[in-house]
Structures are given as structure tokens and as C-alpha cells.
Amino acid sequence: MSRGAIGVLMLETRFPRPPGDIGNPETFDFPMLYQTVRGASPKAVVEDRETGLLTPFVTAGHDLVERGAVALTTSCGFLTLFQKELTAALPVPVATSALLQVPLIDAVLPDGQRAGILTISAQNLTADHLAAVGVPEDTPIGSTEGGIEFTDAILGNRETLDFALAEVDNVEAAQDLCRRHPEVGAICLECTNMPPYAAAIQAATGRPVYSIVTLVEWLHASAQTFRA
């Protein structure tokens, strides 16, 4: 049992996970626990919105708590749809998505600025996903769809990922978001596989970047008093 750890409800994937990715324990300097939810492929969660996966996620969450997790997160930002249900079913704090940070970002930015979202799939990120975690429906959104590597590799669950090309996709999508919406004063990365490129995005756009990594670091710092 690993006390004081953050538990991660993982999609069933095979693509590489470099440092910075939620699925790589080297991303964090505190203990992490991982539990794969069988049947929860990227396609099932992002494109098909399979609500039947809720029960397996709850079961996996209880397993992580029994193993010592003091709080839980997930490996897909689209799981905002399960935020209410998972917090109701599990005995520790649950943060399903980096998008939980958007209302806070909006609250702290200077007047006239707002958060923008960079997602792996704008066509699948719906008003329901945003409303589930209190994100304004008119929040500016950019996407790596149409890029040369990142979206296809992750949603296609490929065994290989060209990190250099994936970085290009993320940087160009973030720059496009800021060009289209100059009021964007900070960027929130919906996808948990985007943080390896956060530094490059920040350097290219001049905007602070929030992600599942910043959320988990906050969650770990604040959740140490919780015990199941």
C-alpha cells in the first residue's frame, strides 16, 4: 500500500508516454498509483461517449483507494462527464479533468482576458463536457485536429508517436487559438497527453499554460489530510 499517493484512472492505451504525460510516473515527484479501466479506449471515451464505462471507473477508483490513493484523477480530459458521478461514488477527492481549472483561471486573469482551451478533438468536446465542470460554453477552443501527428496517434491508439511532430501540432494549434482569440490570456490543455509540450506552447504563445499536471500537483498538496 502506498499512502499519500495520487491514483490515476487510466484509459486502456498503448501509445508512448514521455515525461510530462499523466501516465509516466516520472512526471511527478510524489507517489502515483495507476489502474487501467478495461474497455476504456480513447475512441470509446472521446468519440463514442460510452456511459456504460461509469461502473468500471467506479470499481477501479475503489481499488486505487484501497491501495492507498488519497485523491484520484484520470488520463482523459473528456471524463468531465463522470465528474459528478465519481465524486458521489468515491470516498476521496476526484478531479477528472484539467478543465476543472478553467473557472479559476478566468477568475484570476486581468480584466478583458480569459482562459482558452486546447483540446485533442474540438468536434467531440461538447457543451455537456464543459458544463459538467462549470466551464462557460463560449470559452475559446483550439484543437490539434488537422495536425500531422498528435490527434491521429493518440485517438488512433498507435504504438508509436513522433514527439517532434506532436510538438509542432500542439504549438501551431495553440498559436492559432491565440490568433483567433486575442483575449485568451492563458491556455488550459484538455488532453492529458499534451503537458510534454507545455513549455514549448508557453514559449511560442507567451501565455501561461495549465494542464492535468498543474491540477494534480495542486490536488496532491491539498489532499494529504484525506483518508478513505
Results as ranks from 00 to 15, higher is better:
3 R>Y: 09
24 N>K: 07
59 T>E: 14
120 I>Q: 02
143 S>K: 03
138 D>T: 14
102 V>N: 07
171 V>H: 06
82 F>G: 02
89 A>R: 02
152 D>C: 02
128 D>H: 13
63 D>R: 13
76 C>H: 05
221 A>V: 09
31 P>M: 05
211 S>K: 04
126 T>D: 13
101 Q>R: 12
50 E>K: 14
31 P>L: 03
12 E>Y: 05
14 R>V: 15
112 G>D: 11
200 A>N: 06
158 R>P: 11
190 E>N: 12
43 K>T: 15
108 V>D: 08
69 A>Q: 04
91 P>W: 11
159 E>C: 04
101 Q>F: 09
82 F>V: 04
95 A>M: 12
213 V>R: 03
39 G>S: 11
56 P>H: 09
202 Q>L: 00
167 E>N: 05
3 R>L: 15
153 A>C: 12
197 Y>S: 08
57 F>A: 03
151 T>R: 14
154 I>K: 03
39 G>P: 01
187 I>W: 00
184 V>Q: 03
28 F>C: 03
71 A>C: 09
97 S>K: 06
170 N>H: 07
4 G>P: 01
86 L>Q: 01
21 D>H: 14
222 S>Y: 14
216 V>R: 00
180 R>T: 11
32 M>G: 04
18 P>G: 08
27 T>L: 04
164 A>S: 13
132 A>L: 04
201 I>R: 02
44 A>H: 10
26 E>H: 07
90 L>W: 00
12 E>F: 08
75 S>C: 11
95 A>L: 13
113 Q>A: 13
184 V>T: 08
187 I>H: 00
201 I>P: 01
122 A>H: 12
68 G>I: 11
37 V>M: 06
50 E>F: 01
162 D>C: 10
211 S>F: 01
71 A>S: 13
184 V>P: 00
153 A>N: 03
199 A>E: 15
57 F>C: 02
26 E>P: 00
101 Q>C: 12
142 G>E: 05
207 R>S: 06
45 V>F: 06
153 A>S: 15
101 Q>D: 13
143 S>Y: 09
50 E>Y: 02
56 P>L: 08
180 R>H: 12
72 L>H: 00
214 T>G: 10
219 L>V: 11
12 E>I: 10
48 D>H: 12
37 V>F: 08
37 V>N: 05
103 P>W: 02
227 R>Y: 14
7 G>M: 05
66 E>C: 00
127 A>N: 15
225 T>K: 10
75 S>A: 13
28 F>E: 01
163 F>D: 07
205 T>A: 06
61 G>K: 00
55 T>S: 13
142 G>F: 04
154 I>A: 06
37 V>A: 05
111 D>G: 09
193 N>L: 00
205 T>K: 06
146 G>C: 04
7 G>I: 03
16 P>E: 07
181 H>E: 10
129 H>P: 07
204 A>M: 09
152 D>F: 09
141 I>K: 10
97 S>L: 11
176 D>H: 07
130 L>V: 09
136 P>I: 04
99 L>V: 10
132 A>M: 06
201 I>Y: 02
135 V>R: 01
